[in-house]
Structures are given as structure tokens and as C-alpha cells.
């Protein structure tokens, strides 16, 4: 099987790394070779965080090449823009319809509210998901990462039993039900 490349991006604290770890664990359980490389400096401090997940028969590089990413999952709109050049022509960008203003620096241009239109004009298959809205509905805005993962799962060939077991094994008991609901909600959002 050719290597599938997924890039997950967000703001420190949004759970981009956990989402990518869940995907990597599910891919291992589904029998793939996997590499998952995460990029964070002082990640808890609100900076940009991203992680590559690559799976297939044999994976070498921990990160995909520019233009090779099949799916970009962005937990925030500006972060979708930041990494969109990694996505292959016509590739899929699943983006949380959520905005986190970066800290203001001198002479900074305004936040790019046109992000989604820009990405669509570039020919990407942009799927806008109300992940944070859905997560708040479920009782915790932090579950947006797993909503987004559920949205991605619809496009991957990993059986639901594998996802179920992965969530069970990795998510602490007290948060399991929330995350199971978030995952299911994400799937539902992409189907409809």
C-alpha cells in the first residue's frame, strides 16, 4: 500500500499532538508501518504546533514532503493556511471553523479571514467542520481535536473497531465517553 500522509496542525493546547498520536496508534493496530513526527517548541505556550502521521507498508521520513500530504487537519483556520503548501494538488483540507488570534506584534497585518476562500481558490478540497462548536455542545471545547479526527476517519480505511479500541486504550476513563461522542460526531458531520 502506498504511504498515506496526514498533517495535523493547531495552536499549542488544542490537542494536535494527541490527535496525531491516536491516528498513529490506530494505523499500527490496523497493521501498517507508521511514523509520526511532531513539531513543537514550547508547545504549551500557545505557539503553532503540527504533526505528521505517515502510514503504509514501509515509511522512512518522519515528515511528508511538500505536495505529498493527502489530508491536512487544521484545528484553526490560520494554521490551515500555514501548512496548506504541504497538501497535494486537489488534496483534502479538513478545517475547524475556529479562529485564535495570534499575539499582536507591531505592524502586523489583520487576521486572514479569507483563509477558507483562499484555499478553495487554490483547488483544494476544503471541508469546513464546526469542531469546536460541536465539542462545546458536548461539554468541553478541548474535544475539538477528536471531532476533527472523526471527520477524517470517514476517508480512511481503518475499521471502526480499531478506532474504538484505540480510544479506549489511550484516553483516560473520565474523558472516554466525551471523546467517543466527539469522534462519532465528527464522522457524522462529514457524512451529512
Amino acid at each position: 500500500m502506498a504511504v498515506t500522509n496526514v498533517l495535523i496542525a493547531g495552536v499549542g493546547g488544542q490537542g494536535a499532538v494527541l490527535a496525531s498520536e491516536l491516528l498513529a496508534l490506530a494505523a499500527v493496530a490496523a497493521g501498517h508501518d507508521v511514523k509520526q513526527g511532531e513539531f513543537h517548541g514550547v508547545a504549551q505556550r500557545g505557539g503553532a504546533v503540527f504533526s505528521h502521521v505517515r502510514f503504509g507498508d514501509r515509511v522512512y521520513s518522519p515528515m511528508a514532503r511538500c505536495g505529498d500530504v493527502d489530508f491536512l487537519l487544521a484545528l484553526e483556520r490560520l494554521e490551515a493556511l500555514r501548512y496548506a503548501h504541504f497538501v497535494k494538488p486537489g488534496g483534502t483540507i479538513i478545517v475547524n471553523d475556529h479562529k485564535v488570534e495570534p499575539i499582536r506584534v507591531a505592524d502586523q497585518r489583520p487576521y486572514p479571514d479569507e483563509a477558507i476562500d483562499f484555499l478553495e481558490a487554490k483547488g483544494f478540497n476544503v471541508v469546513v467542520v464546526e469542531a469546536t462548536g460541536k465539542a462545546i455542545e458536548l461539554g468541553n471545547h478541548r474535544a475539538a481535536n477528536v471531532v476533527l479526527l472523526g471527520a477524517l476517519a470517514e476517508s480512511l480505511d481503518i475499521p471502526q473497531e480499531v478506532w474504538d479500541k484505540t480510544l479506549q486504550d489511550r484516553i483516560p476513563e473520565r474523558l472516554l465517553s466525551l471523546n467517543q461522542q466527539a469522534f462519532a460526531a465528527g464522522r457524522q458531520l462529514t457524512i451529512s
Binding site: G41, C66, G67, R82, H85, I103, Y111, P112, E114, F118
Partner: peptide, 20 residues
């Protein structure tokens, strides 16, 4: 050649880490 990001076409604002 190494592909460029889209910062030349749209405002890809920096997001430095901040104190919480």
C-alpha cells in the same frame, strides 16, 4: 526546488509562543 508556502499571497501571520 523546495516549494514555497503561501505567505507571499496571503497573511500567514506568525504565531509565536506566549505566556499562558
Amino acid at each position: 526546488p523546495v516549494a514555497d508556502d503561501f505567505a507571499g499571497e496571503v497573511a500567514v501571520l506568525p504565531r509565536p509562543p506566549v505566556m499562558c
